[in-house]
Simulated assay, not measured.
Amino acid sequence: MFTGIVQTTCKVVDIQKKEGVTTLAIHMPASLREGLVTGASVANNGVCLTVTQIDDDRVFFDVMEETLAVTNLSNLAVCDQVNIERSLKFGTEIGGHILSGHIQTMATVIEISSNDQHHNLKLQVEPQWMDYIFYKGFIGVNGCSLTVGQLSDTGFMLHLIPETLRMTNLADYKVGQQFNIEIDSQTQVIVDTVTRLMASKVNQS
């Protein structure tokens, strides 16, 4: 489990592609590696990955083909920065919202508006996901817990503060690139339950 509060960005220092699996080597500072062990879960751009090896200042993760197919980890290159969050510990303050690290879809950046006062992103997702995205609701974007801005039929706005830009890789993305998206699980359950109940009543009438 994760909170959606990205701790820092870390550099991809190596990518090894093998049949059925890709191994990512991520450079992590000592403060972030403290207490980290093989088998631990770490969110990389919001994707829950298992630590397979720790070698000095590098941490290794194996990414399966299915994960690569549905996330932007497949687009990573050496020297790219990824958002990193260690798994949630009991007693830790939850400043965002609970995330599982399981990505449902990706959103494409279709417009960027940025100056000294703001950094706004307009994102587009496949229409069926808009059933779960609400104005002022929560959403996970590359592992960041963010508040949804204005909605359209096929997407939504993000209004990012300077601290979010400083701590994450969101400002690095250009028009046409894709973010990993995790829908708020409670919202999805509520919407799906109401939809089923309404369909059941219609069928009974």
Rank of each mutant, 00 (worst) to 15 (best):
V63M: 14
L121A: 05
Q188P: 03
M198Q: 15
F179V: 08
K18A: 11
L123P: 02
M1R: 13
M64W: 07
T67E: 06
M198E: 13
M106F: 06
L170C: 09
Q81N: 13
L151A: 07
G39K: 11
D55Y: 05
M157W: 14
N72D: 08
S205W: 08
T92L: 07
V37H: 15
T193S: 14
Q124T: 10
S185V: 11
H97F: 03
T23Y: 02
V6R: 03
L160P: 00
G143V: 00
T193K: 09
M167F: 09
P29Y: 06
V175N: 10
Q104I: 04
R58W: 05
G95C: 02
I26A: 00
L121M: 15
M130R: 12
I183F: 05
R196G: 01
I15P: 07
I15G: 01
V13K: 12
T168D: 02
Y173G: 06
N115V: 03
H159L: 10
D57F: 00
V82Y: 02
V191R: 04
Q81M: 13
A171Y: 06
A69I: 10
L73W: 00
Q117P: 00
D184M: 08
D14M: 10
E163C: 02
E126D: 15
M106K: 14
K174A: 15
I5H: 02
N142G: 04
C144N: 13
S114F: 00
W129Q: 04
V194A: 11
V59T: 09
T50A: 01
Y132P: 10
T147M: 01
G4C: 05
T3P: 03
G95V: 03
I161L: 08
G137H: 05
E93W: 02
K18D: 15
S31R: 13
A30T: 14
D192N: 15
H159A: 14
V59C: 07
S87N: 09
T52M: 12
H118K: 13
Q186R: 12
